[in-house]
Amino acid sequence: MNVEPDKLLASAHRVLDIELEAIANLKQAFDQQFIAACQIMLACKGKVVVTGMGKSGHIANKIAATLASTGTPAFFMHPGEAGHGDLGMLGEDDVLLAISNSGETSEVLSLLPVVKRLGIEVIAMTRSPESSMGRYADIHLSIAVPREACSLGLAPTSSTSVTLVLGDALAVALLDAKNFTAEEFALSHPSGSLGKKLLLTLNDIMHSGDRVPLVAETSSIRDALVIITQKSLGLAGIVDAEGKLIGIFTDGDLRRVIDAHKDVHNTRISEVMTRNCFTAHREMLAAEALNEMENRNISSLIVVDAHNRPVGALNMLDLIKSGVV
């Protein structure tokens, strides 16, 4: 099927223009009803239960997920399943956020008498406060749009975009009201990149025990090279008689030793090691260590305790594997 590229682009541009217009009109929904909805959700001692059917259900599911990840306990309840037992998910301390563009979705409407009987407050998102759901709800939030982006005017397009944005506005308003922090966000996203950056410490990823490459200050360069090769971290920590770190020896130091024609068998490692090296503590965030390593142009480091005794080691590859990079 041959379609002119310009026609395809024209359709895409038209959709964008229509949906941008719909989202701009959404500002009218940020009124006293929006404030009241936020206050109800802030005062909620249970969970915000979000429901919707069809396309509204897909959007409701996403809104519930956004609320839950930004500090407002929430989950999605399928209205069809709710009518066959899942309504038991709702508790008297919960709030119901019901979504339907028409406000006449039978699966949702059939739940509302029971919900009201339980004394649960209802926030409805529909295009009209005069819809059945709008009249039944304690709070009505308008998702009316001038027109759908679908050229037939039938498929939910502008209306679902507006609903999604309104859900985001609620979630972020609640987040700000609660002073929800990035660290709290990370706690609900421990597997995501942000979670790793805010939660992962060097203690979680460092090599410890016998895997830490250490040699005594009286050892030869050759002894240090053997340890570096065995441990495969690109460096060796040099310790004194008390086990305290006094320096490191890296691949870069080895190149300088070779250039200076040093005797690797008879030269003590303490004569060629790098002193005053950068070290880290086990509680340091992995992301913070990564920044330090990049700023100092180093690829490996030693982790020490409060007495400057080595307790761990890691290199850039360890940070990459951890997902921090």
Rank of each mutant, 00 (worst) to 15 (best):
E121M: 11
A22K: 06
I320K: 05
A177C: 05
S100C: 08
N308M: 13
T267M: 13
K55D: 06
A36D: 09
I143K: 01
G46S: 14
V212S: 00
L109Y: 02
D6I: 10
V95L: 05
A24H: 10
V49T: 00
G252S: 05
I320M: 08
S219G: 10
I99Q: 04
M125W: 07
L174I: 15
E21L: 13
M41K: 07
M293R: 09
I248T: 15
P213C: 05
D240C: 03
D93Y: 14
Q32H: 15
F185Y: 13
D17W: 13
S142V: 03
I35M: 11
T66P: 02
R296I: 04
E294D: 00
I18V: 15
A43H: 12
L118E: 07
L141G: 11
N295K: 11
T250F: 00
A74R: 04
H189N: 06
N2I: 12
K27V: 10
F30V: 13
S188V: 00
Q32R: 14
G243A: 05
V3W: 14
V114N: 07
H140Q: 09
A43G: 12
G252P: 12
N25E: 10
G85L: 00
H84N: 01
R222S: 09
H58W: 03
K196M: 14
E148P: 05
N295Y: 02
R309T: 00
F185W: 08
L26Q: 08
A286C: 10
G80P: 00
L111I: 01
P73T: 12
K62N: 10
R14L: 12
G57V: 07
E81V: 07
A224H: 03
T105P: 00
V311E: 00
T66Q: 07
V3G: 03
K196W: 11
A182H: 09
T279Q: 10
R127A: 06
N276R: 15
L254Q: 01
T163K: 03
L200A: 02
E104Q: 15
L198R: 09
R147M: 03
T157S: 07
G52Q: 01
S110P: 00
G57P: 07
S188W: 11
L194I: 14
L314D: 02
S220E: 13
F180S: 03
Q33V: 04
E242S: 10
D223N: 13
E81Q: 05
S151Y: 02
I320W: 08
N266I: 06
R256Y: 10
T72G: 12
V325T: 11
A12E: 14
G252F: 08
K231G: 01
A22I: 08
R255P: 12
D305K: 06
R268G: 15
S106D: 08
K321W: 03
